[in-house]
């Protein structure tokens, strides 16, 4: 085999990433201004920015065959956004599977010539692993949304509960910020 899949993916990285990003943007309402895609400023367009950085780091991790259990902070960032954007769980995570389609379309010729099928299978399995990993993150985000509601209620009623001798400690402090950080 003169060209490995890794080499091909590296070569076509820019195109694949750009098409992947474009395909994800199509899950958002039609916006002729193309705001998410065009606005480059990370503060004016935090959603587009999270995707641009995140997709690249995910793609790199897949090519370099990194151990996903070590965590991908930029994947967290993307999923945090998708988890509060009014998508069904399936749609929220569909962006991961779209990568398969993009890779297959970009490498159509090489696939047809059957140069890379074994490697491609293993690459696609890795995308499946990533999807499962993303599912963990997504569920934690959703659980956190509910936890936030509980915490907010506690913050609001703490003084009353303390006065009524129904609460002695501040439960919020039992969870150290560092614990929360690793839990996502």
């Amino acid at each position: 085999m003169d060209k490995s899949l890794k080499g091909l993916l590296k070569e076509k990285k820019a195109t694949i990433l750009s098409r992947w990003f474009g395909a994800i943007m199509e899950s958002y309402p039609i916006d002729i201004t193309g705001f998410f895609q065009k606005q480059e400023d990370m503060f004016a367009n935090p959603v587009g920015h999270a995707f641009k950085l995140g997709l690249e780091s995910i793609f790199e991790a897949l090519i370099e065959e990194k151990d996903l259990s070590e965590g991908l902070p930029l994947l967290d960032d993307i999923i945090k956004v998708r988890a509060v954007q009014d998508f069904t769980p399936a749609k929220a995570l569909s962006f991961i599977f779209i990568l398969k389609k993009m890779v297959r379309e970009e490498l159509e010729k090489e696939i047809r010539q059957d140069q890379i099928s074994d490697e491609l299978l293993s690459f696609e399995s890795k995308i499946d692993d990533l999807a499962l990993f993303a599912f963990n993150i997504y569920v934690k985000c959703r659980e956190q949304i509910n936890q936030l509601k509980v915490d907010e209620l506690k913050r609001m009623t703490f003084t009353l509960l303390k006065k009524a001798n129904l609460m002695y400690e501040i439960p919020m402090e039992e969870v150290k910020p560092s614990d929360q950080e690793t839990s996502i």
Binding site: Y28, P29, I30, D31, T33, F35, F36, Q39, A44, N45, P46, V47, V81, Q85, D86
Partner: peptide, 17 residues
């Protein structure tokens, strides 16, 4: 003119026109 369009935090976060 659209100067306001991409200044709203809800628009920035949702992309909902």
């Amino acid at each position: 003119c659209g100067a306001c369009a991409d200044k709203c935090h809800f628009y920035i976060a949702t992309g909902d026109p």
